[in-house]
């Protein structure tokens, strides 16, 4: 079968190119590991100065989780704050607590405030305020940023690498004249596109299975749903990346021009993938989201991995991704008419 011959050739070429194959698997693993270490490296310990805080108040405070320095006057605390020895200091003036923060890093300022709010004695002497109980519909108090970003990044890596590799590979086919040679053979146009889809599809299945398994089982990324659904979504996303890459490669004359599509096509998709809250994007820009494949893939992956949902929640995303693939496949077949009319 001719499609199979093409598939076999593509797989052979990928396997032959050890370095590219390494990049496709090792690079995402490396970046995910680094993100894991960056985001899950433990909570920040704020450094806080107490300026003349009465011992009665200090005794009631829970001082765990911060480095506390005591100052006798505000002036020396201010000096240390300016030198970034402490992140903030607490004073009690006229029986009301006041806080001064260094404030140049919002993350540090936030951590300092959070700690102070927890540490301050609740109420006065009688301390009868009931403990607020918090339950989670999804996730848990242990869930970190990495767990929330993870599914999006998983999708992003698959999209990015497949887009680039497939695009460059088809571009070479065109520039070396082998595409013309293929069209001088009885191979049909749809067989060329399908050969690429199946060849890269098989490779992407293996690639995303390895990356997803590593993220979930080695790095401990949150995984509530079924692994099979994760693979299904990454495969569909890879197919859109593949068909879009092939399509755009016909607008590039060399590898460098193919790279130029990264900031135009790949990077903007991150903004609509849910890595940033979609509700806060300017209205005049937010309509772009539904036109980007990563928007659907990230939504589905998050539903599966964080929320543990199944088919009922993700089928619309699956249809959207399959729709993108079918659209790009058809346009590709039409675009090949440029080289052979039949």
């Amino acid at each position: 079968m001719r499609v199979f011959a093409l598939t076999q050739r593509i797989l052979r070429q990928i396997v032959r190119d050890k370095r590219t194959m390494g990049l496709l698997i090792i690079a995402p693993i490396l970046v995910l590991t680094m993100l894991h270490l960056v985001f899950n490296g433990g909570d920040y310990t704020p450094k806080i100065g107490f300026v003349d805080v009465p011992t009665t108040v200090v005794e009631q405070m829970n001082l765990e989780g911060a480095d506390v320095t005591t100052y006798s006057d505000e002036k020396s605390a201010k000096a240390d704050l300016a030198n970034r020895m402490i992140d903030g200091y607490l004073t009690i003036a006229n029986n009301a607590p006041a806080v001064v923060l260094e404030g140049s890093d919002p993350g540090v300022a936030g951590a300092t405030m959070k700690w102070l709010q927890q540490a301050m004695p609740t109420g006065q002497e009688n301390g009868h305020s009931p403990q607020l109980e918090i339950d989670y519909l999804h996730g848990s108090s242990d869930m970190g940023t990495f767990d929330y970003f993870g599914p999006v990044l998983l999708g992003f890596f698959v999209f990015f690498f497949v887009f680039l590799i497939a695009g460059v590979s088809f571009l070479r086919e065109r520039t070396t004249g082998t595409l013309e040679r293929l069209l001088a053979s009885p191979l049909r146009k749809w067989e060329i596109v399908m050969g690429y889809v199946v060849g890269f599809g098989i490779f992407t299945m293996i690639q995303s299975a390895i990356i997803a398994a590593y993220a979930i089982y080695v790095l401990g990324m949150m995984m509530e749903g079924a692994f099979g659904y994760v693979l299904l979504i990454t495969l569909l996303l890879a197919l859109t990346a593949l068909t879009l890459g092939i399509l755009l490669s016909s607008f590039a004359n060399n590898e460098l021009q193919m790279m130029q599509f990264i900031p135009i096509i790949v990077v903007p998709q991150i903004f609509f993938s849910g890595l940033f809250n979609l509700d806060t994007i300017s209205k005049w820009l937010s309509w772009v989201g539904p036109f980007t494949p990563l928007y659907y893939a990230a939504d589905a992956l998050r539903d599966i991995m964080v929320r543990g949902y199944g088919w009922g929640a993700i089928y619309m995303d699956i249809f959207a991704l399959a729709g993108f693939s079918l659209l790009f496949i058809s346009v590709n077949i039409l675009a090949l008419r440029k080289y052979r009319k039949i």
């Binding site: 052979r12 032959r16 070396t176 004249g177 082998t178 013309e180 040679r181």
Partner: peptide, 12 residues
């Protein structure tokens, strides 16, 4: 058909 450019897969 043999084209003017060698349409071969160099990595194979």
């Amino acid at each position: 058909y043999m084209a003017q450019s060698d349409a071969l897969y160099e990595d194979l």
